[in-house]
């Protein structure tokens, strides 16, 4: 392995870490503003013009707050749980091509850390490992609400892994590769080639499952608002809680990148316009996460399980079978 490759990879990793940590912060600002406007409020207004520096104030607060480890918790696990959430979220980013490759000072840059041949499986797998953050955090907290919430989170995550996997099985069969770059090449011909037209059901299923994977509002059972308790994060304070937060928002961003890459043509032919298109699609999906939070109520856990196992999973299986038949004949 030559050192140029090593240096390039390290730079890419650092850039992704910094950009998406900052984006997670800015994401909270957008979330508050969008939610506020939809509820006829103004949202944060006092820190900086129109409150744009609010996330800076929040960051200072999170970094400087006392790090409380309550008595009675299983300290090592309690301490490592938020790191798992944040780390797995960023690890998943390694196989996502964020932009088409471009040239800078005569040097070709591929904005993907590593184009491994099992890209999608890797992303989904690592995101699924993120489940251990809430699960271990809740179980180590010595708090009943945390424990219940951790159990709920585990149930939701594991159930929806099934839907996610089956939903993208059909597109994978069509493309014949697991790399997101190959997915992008498959759809590079223009809007008519997007997988969403041939696999609309898989697209909807994957989108629904994305809400469960990120724990966003219609399936926001991880931190249970009606108990007025922040679920598995109840006992956390300061930056440990902040890591859970960054993990959640980074996950939202990454999923918002993955959905267009899989179904909506990604960055297209790799031109500048295509790159802008990918960012626009990503922004739409991120905005949609906020939009549903303002519009839709949460569902009960048992309804969520019913939806997953009795509705979405059969549809996904039927979709795979039909795709198989169509490809065969």
């Amino acid at each position: 392995m030559d050192s140029a490759y090593l240096i390039e990879t390290i730079i890419k990793v650092v850039v992704i870490l910094l950009v998406f940590s900052a984006l997670a912060g800015i994401g909270t600002y957008f979330e508050r503003k969008v939610l506020a406007f939809m509820q006829r409020r103004l949202g944060p207004m006092n820190v900086g013009p129109y409150g744009v520096l609010q996330f800076g104030a929040d960051a200072i607060k999170l970094f400087t707050k006392e790090d409380i480890i309550p008595t009675g918790v299983v300290a090592p696990i309690f301490k490592i749980a938020p790191v798992i959430t944040a780390a797995t979220a960023f690890m998943a980013a390694a196989a996502i091509p964020f932009l088409p490759s471009f040239e800078i000072f005569g040097y070709e840059v591929h904005p993907i850390v590593s184009d491994i041949n099992v890209g999608i499986i890797y992303i989904l797998g690592v995101m699924a490992v993120g489940l251990y953050g809430p699960l271990l955090g809740g179980m180590a907290s010595a708090n009943k609400y945390s424990l219940i919430s951790a159990a709920r989170a585990a149930a939701v995550f594991i159930s929806y892994e099934v839907v996610t996997g089956l939903a993208i099985l059909a597109p994978i069969m069509m493309v014949g590769s697991l790399s997101l770059i190959d997915f992008n090449e498959y759809q590079a011909g223009g809007i008519g080639n997007w997988i969403v037209w041939s696999q609309p059901v898989a697209f909807i299923l994957f989108w629904i499952a994305a809400f469960a994977e990120t724990g966003r509002t219609p399936f926001h059972l991880i931190a249970n608002d009606h108990e007025i308790i922040d679920g598995f994060g109840t006992e956390y304070s300061g930056m440990r809680w902040g890591l859970f937060f960054i993990g959640e928002y980074a996950n939202m961003f990454f999923i918002s990148f993955v959905i267009p890459l899989l179904f909506l043509g990604g960055y297209g032919d790799g031109s500048f316009l295509g790159a802008l298109g990918l960012l626009a699609k990503m922004s739409f999906f991120f905005f949609f996460f906020l939009w549903t939070r303002a519009a839709w109520p949460d569902v009960r856990p048992d309804q969520l399980m019913w939806l997953c196992w009795k509705v979405l999973m059969p549809i996904a299986v039927i979709n795979v079978v039909i795709t198989g038949f169509v490809m065969m004949f």
Binding site: V34, A36, F37, M38, Q39, R40, R41, L42, W291, A294, A295
Partner: peptide, 12 residues
């Protein structure tokens, strides 16, 4: 909710 956001009739 989208209508309310576009209308921007803020009550704060």
């Amino acid at each position: 909710v989208m209508r309310e956001m576009i209308r921007f009739d803020i009550h704060t």
